[in-house]
Design a protein around this nucleic acid. Structure first.
Length: 887
RNA sequence: GGGCGGUUAGCUCAGCUGGAAGAGCGCCUCCCUUACAAGGAGGAGGUCACUGGUUCGAGCCCAGUACCGCCCA
């Protein structure tokens, strides 16, 4: 047969070809009316801020692996894709972009700015979706969604209105985290703390009507301008005499009281603390408890307010300097110490966050959290790895109200309208014509938008058409699995749990698999400044998508980060090439055109002597790998599944099976050739099926070239193990043969015998082994490069010999040229040393009566058997060594 | 301050229910044998961080110590 198959796999063309074809054939589509069991995953929507990174590549690959596996298992799968409008992040990216052109959003106005962001979104979304396609992902593109599209926006309004009506959303003036650069409130989660080397200023606050004073310690002296009290611990005996007295706030000359409160840490500073309810979360709480006035001295722009007196309009850090200098001048600065403390930064722009009092919208999530905790406790949703449960519970139990309003332009505008006439608020899904309280017609909509995570929280059901009762919701909700990065467990997973339970009455997903973070090969975070960022597109171009996917899967150990190694990926590109060439060999020798069925193989299996030993062995081993792979998938052990398949394909199927089967596959005996190539085709096809979820392109490309049933490997049935094809006896026999061949090869290599030279061999073994080896002589000769093989009752000692031992037989290689006796001696001594260690260990074990009594029978029996074998081999090796000394 | 994870070959990491220490890359020797040199055959290299405990048996379980990393406050 003349076939022209390239020697190396070229991914680029195959990837493009098959992806387009799969999509065109509609193979990615879900069929809710099919009546088949459903399996669904919603894609964590990437932000439309830019392009995908390795973290996305990992996350998306793992989902595709699961989805392809389930699809092949016959499920009606839905993998629903989409993107996230990512409010603050996208607004910032676009603003930076505008800044490069010397423009500001405020110059453009809200409407114009929104238009520009939409344009940005269109471009970014297209890029992202194409990147997902490049990864080979089999998402149902007909259901692609966007968190800010009409349907999802409607769901957002519905949820907002219902939570408001249920009293779970309220508006009020509280202390929030404020980013002076983004000029918006942000939630607690959006603040990132960094240990910072700062100072601790000790300031004297004079007591009213006395020359005495108290000393307070603070890390933020500028906030003293807003102090409305000084506090000590109620049980702090150093200060009991001061309770209730008044101090004069320096610089402001304001009279403030000395109060007591449990929150004071007696060990911090002097044990006397200033209380600034307007700019510190703890102080705010004290202020609420003790009804202290709030003085807001720092404004939304990070500059001091009028309330800061002569510091007004100064930047907060300028003000700090000024305050310190003035205190010093007045002799009120007692001392300054170095002090390390955590400073909160805006997650999106790294500006130091300012806690300040502001009117915002909040969601009361505690009641929702209770149901979400229960659901995980009851295992309605299972976390993989399990230890994320703890992290989740910890956060959920201590959950605080969620600040959901943002002073941004890009996002879902809060569906609340203010009435200037009566001052009341109307909250509604659609813009109301009149005020629901006074029927005034001059309503104004809230200008704030919602936290972007508010809409993400609805993703599992809003994407399926909620609040309408759709077929998709009915069939695919709850989704089966969520695959997500662990760093958004609170931002996203926890909130989806709460919203899903609240509005759907069911958990949003049955399993949450947390994937690790992709790091560089030394475990370092990939950052632009380190210059170690790997772009998935670039490496897909260079190594192929399949190689990248396989690498990610092979390294995806649950609960660990992934130190992505390019050299390792190169290894997996070689693996792809290995698959290519194994298939190439078979295809070049394949004479039949009809697909091979399981029935056909089963028939051969049942018939006595129809299959060669290596065929029975390989089929038997295949069953083990099939059941292991399915089991590993069930447990999300992708690294185990991929590593096992790698080893099986390369080191069992290629290194041994194909080498053994070669004779028959290339035989001129048509009957033999045909059977061998059909069995091999079956084995190869099964391997391609097993590997398809990991490496979809190369497997489809090769499968299409094999005679096959069905249109695409994508929808071929995933292999299921046949227990009746497991033949442990034949596995043992093959093991013996392999060991003997390896022993001969080692003996040859260590004696530098020309690998091409065929050498005669003598074998000494028992009758049972002899009859087996006799039947496998052709294999022995081929794989160990042997000439004549002779069974003897005594190994000849004369002449030039290299001798060796395996479990099945002793052997002697008969050479006609001088060997390196010294090297051979060394080799034997090394082997003897190894065996002696084993003998010693086993001896100790077997002399231990406790072991004999308490260990399971099987373990003891195994140890005994192994001991006998090892002792026997050791004896033989020693004999060889002695023989070697003789001339 | 509280919690979690890690420490196994030169490097990066596996090791799932405790029962003969593994992979990839790198290194050494030989071989371009008509599937594959992106290949084949063989080889070197490990007190599984430390201390104690449980067990017939510990890389794996328990306690403590040291160092590294992450999360929360």
């Amino acid at each position: 047969m003349t076939k022209n198959i390239p020697k190396a796999y070229e991914p680029a063309e195959a990837e493009k070809k098959w992806y387009t074809w799969w999509e065109k054939q509609g193979l990615f589509q879900a069929h809710p009316g099919s009546g088949k069991a459903a399996y669904s995953i919603v894609l964590p929507p990437p932000n439309v801020t830019g392009s995908l990174h390795m973290g996305h590549a990992l996350n998306i690959t793992l989902q595709d692996i699961i989805i392809r596996w389930k699809r092949m298992q016959g499920f009606d799968v839905l993998w629903l894709p989409g993107t996230d409008h990512a409010g603050i992040a996208t607004q910032n990216v676009v603003e930076r972009h505008l800044a490069e052109q010397g423009k500001k959003r405020t110059d453009l106005g809200r409407e114009k700015f929104e238009q520009i962001v939409w344009q940005w979104k269109e471009k970014a979304e297209t890029d992202i979706l194409n990147q997902i396609r490049r990864l080979g992902c089999s998402c149902d593109w007909s259901r692609n969604r966007f968190t800010f599209d009409d349907g999802l926006s409607r769901a957002v309004r519905e949820v907002f209105v219902r939570l408001y009506q249920d009293g779970l959303i309220y508006r009020g003036e509280y202390l929030v985290n404020w980013c002076p650069r983004c000029t918006t409130a942000i939630s607690d989660l959006e603040v990132e703390y960094e240990p910072t080397q700062g100072k601790l200023w000790h300031i004297k606050y004079p007591l009213k009507g006395s020359s005495d004073f108290v000393v307070v310690a603070t890390t933020r002296p500028e906030t003293m301008l807003g102090d409305t009290a000084v506090a000590v611990h109620p049980e702090d005996e150093r200060y009991t005499h001061l309770t209730g007295r008044t101090v004069i706030l320096p610089l402001m000359e304001r009279e403030i009281r000395i109060i007591t409160d449990d929150f004071v840490d007696r060990k911090f500073g002097t044990g006397v603390v200033k209380v600034t309810p307007g700019h510190d979360p703890y102080d705010f709480e004290v202020g609420q408890r003790q009804q202290l006035p709030i003085v807001k001295v720092i404004g939304e722009d990070g500059r001091m307010t009028e309330a800061a007196g002569r510091y007004a309009k100064m930047d907060r850090y300028e003000a700090r300097k000024g305050v310190v200098a003035d205190l010093e001048k007045q002799g009120l600065l007692m001392k300054v110490e170095d002090h390390s403390h955590n400073v909160g930064h805006c997650q999106r722009c790294e500006t130091v966050v300012e806690p300040l009092v502001s009117t915002q919208w909040f969601a009361k999530v505690k009641p929702l959290a209770e149901a979400a905790i229960r659901a995980v406790k009851e295992k309605q949703t299972v976390f993989v790895p399990e230890n994320y449960e703890k992290i989740y519970f910890e956060w959920m139990h201590n959950i605080h109200d969620w600040c959901i309003s943002r002073q941004l332009w890009w996002g879902h505008r809060i569906p609340a309208w203010y009435c200037p006439d009566c001052g009341e608020i109307t909250v509604a899904q659609e813009a109301p014509e009149i005020c629901s309280h006074c029927e005034s017609r001059s309503l104004e909509q809230e200008s704030d938008v919602l936290d972007t995570w508010f809409s993400s929280a609805l993703w599992p059901f809003s994407t399926m058409g909620w609040p309408d009762q759709t077929k998709d919701l009915q069939v695919y909700y709850s989704t089966n699995t969520l695959v997500t990065a662990s760093d958004i467990i609170f931002f996203w997973v926890a909130r989806m749990m709460m919203m899903g339970l609240r509005f759907m009455g069911e958990v949003p997903f049955r399993t949450v698999y947390f994937n690790g973070m992709v790091r560089d090969e030394h475990g370092q975070k990939m950052t632009k400044s380190r210059g170690n960022v790997i772009d998935p597109l670039e490496i897909m171009d260079e190594y192929g998508t399949d190689a990248m996917r396989f690498t990610l899967a092979a390294m995806a150990v649950p609960g660990t980060n992934i130190p992505f190694s390019v050299s390792r990926m190169a290894g997996y590109r070689h693996f792809c090439n290995k698959i290519w060439n194994a298939a190439r060999f078979l295809l070049l020798n394949l004479e039949h055109e009809e697909p091979v069925t399981e029935e056909e193989i089963d028939e051969l299996w049942r018939e006595e002597n129809r299959l060669e030993v290596e065929e029975r062995w390989m089929l038997s081993r295949l069953q083990k790998i099939i059941s292991d792979t399915n089991e590993n998938f069930e447990k999300f052990r992708f690294h185990e599944a991929s590593n096992q398949l790698y080893h099986f394909f390369w080191h069992e199927f290629c290194d041994w099976f194909i080498e053994l089967a070669k004779v028959n596959i290339t035989s001129h005996d048509v009957r033999k050739q045909r059977r061998a190539s059909r069995v091999t085709a079956y084995l190869l096809e099964t391997c391609l099926k097993l590997l398809h979820p990991f490496i979809p392109f190369i497997t489809e490309e090769l499968w299409q070239q094999l005679p096959h049933l069905g249109d695409s490997l994508m929808i071929a049935p995933y292999p299921v193990a046949h227990q009746e094809w497991v033949d442990l006896a034949v596995e043992k026999q093959m093991g013996g043969l392999q060991e003997l061949i390896s022993a001969v090869r080692t003996a040859r290599a260590e004696n530098n015998i020309d690998p091409r030279k065929r050498v005669p061999l003598q074998l000494l073994c028992n009758d049972e082994h002899q009859s087996f080896l006799q039947s496998q002589l052709h294999h022995l000769k081929n794989l160990a490069q042997l000439d004549q093989v002779e069974f003897v009752s005594n190994l000849e000692r004369g002449g030039i010999r290299v001798q060796g031992v395996s479990r099945m037989a002793e052997f002697s290689l008969i050479l006609d040229e001088v060997i390196d006796v010294g090297a051979e001696r060394q080799r034997l001594i090394r082997q003897i040393n190894r065996f002696e260690t084993s003998v010693q260990q086993l001896q100790e074990k077997l002399q231990n009566t406790e072991f004999l009594h308490k260990a399971p029978e099987q373990v003891v029996a195994d140890a005994r058997k192994r001991y006998e074998e090892v002792v026997e081999q050791l004896r033989k090796l020693k004999e060889k060594l002695n023989g070697l000394s003789r001339p």
